[in-house]
Design a protein around this nucleic acid. Structure first.
Lengths: 166, 166
DNA sequence: GCCTGTTCCTTCAAGTATAAAATATTTTTG
DNA sequence: CAAAAATATTTTATACTTGAAGGAACAGGC
């Protein structure tokens, strides 16, 4: 054997020397299952109880943390979705009267979006229910489990950010 | 004080007696961030390297585990997406020649879908790269971390399933 | 056999999502 | 200051996704 140490791109290497990544794959699939299950349940409950979609709730949740409003770009980054997506979401939330647009004080390219008083009030009710639901769905975990998960996921998150961007 | 023990629905109770669910909420947001980051990276790489979308990859991944094929309903359940969604995905994968439809042996309502030889070959390459990518993205975790996460997420998953369905 | 309820799939409308191109404005640079 | 580069948003094309409604086929009891 004694193969020479040739550098290959990931695909070629993967096909010729398939390492054992089963544990990591299974972990990834389980993470995906968990988030899909929770997200699906939250989505259904938001629709049933408040007639609102999850993306709109998420957008309002970002705005709620910024009383002065936020630019579309900031929203896009925080929600981790594309710019065009935010444009459309804001458009629909404008129509329903939950958010309003303001001129940016110093940058005429930018648009600031903020919750309306109505939007703020509506969101408060949804957020309280949402918190209860998340607590209900994660009630299978002891406080120590929650802390442990936070720590491990924190480790994962910072590594993924390194690999993906930096 | 000494309020009477009246039973209220979740929304009302949440607004009037907001319990402290901050830890659980933060955990949920962190989980969401992790999966979104990884999913986004995998989606971009699949597109860049293979010109395929993540949903199509996911569908083919299910079929690869079923050499004899699988009904649309089974696909829908395993992928945790709606029926109509699967119909559309299969339609597009039929056009590209990655999957084929077969008659169900005993149930004329059902449709069986299976990978074509081409689809199987194409998927093999994508799956190998995908496994490498997942390993790369989760490399920030020690083997013990992976095992611990599997355990905790397993606990979460089974509880969520209970709450959501049963 | 028929009736009833269920399951399997498709269709549809609305909404969500990406990537890429286009536009407008700001900032940087030479 | 003018040109170039960078930024903020919108637009476009395409694809994905859901939830709900509908039609076809199955399964059971009568």
């Amino acid at each position: 054997m004694n193969e020479p140490p040739i550098l290959l791109d990931a695909e070629t290497r993967a096909q010729e020397h398939p390492a054992d990544h089963r544990a990591e794959l299974r972990l990834w699939l389980r993470m995906l299952t968990c988030t899909n299950l929770i997200e699906g349940e939250i989505r259904a409950r938001l629709r049933r109880h408040f007639g609102v979609t999850l993306p709109r709730f998420d957008l309002m949740a970002q705005l709620e943390k910024a009383p002065e409003g936020m630019t579309l770009g900031e929203l896009s980054r925080r929600m981790m979705v594309s710019n065009g997506n935010v444009t459309g979401l804001v458009e629909r939330l404008l129509e329903s009267g939950h958010v309003e647009r303001r001129a940016h004080p110093s940058d005429r390219r930018a648009v600031v979006v903020a919750l309306t008083p109505t939007g703020r009030h509506v969101f408060a009710g949804m957020a309280a229910a949402h918190a209860e639901w998340i607590a209900e769905l994660t009630a299978g975990l002891a406080p120590a489990d929650v802390a442990q998960l936070m720590r491990l996921l924190g480790r994962l998150k910072s590594h993924v950010k390194e690999v993906a961007h930096g």
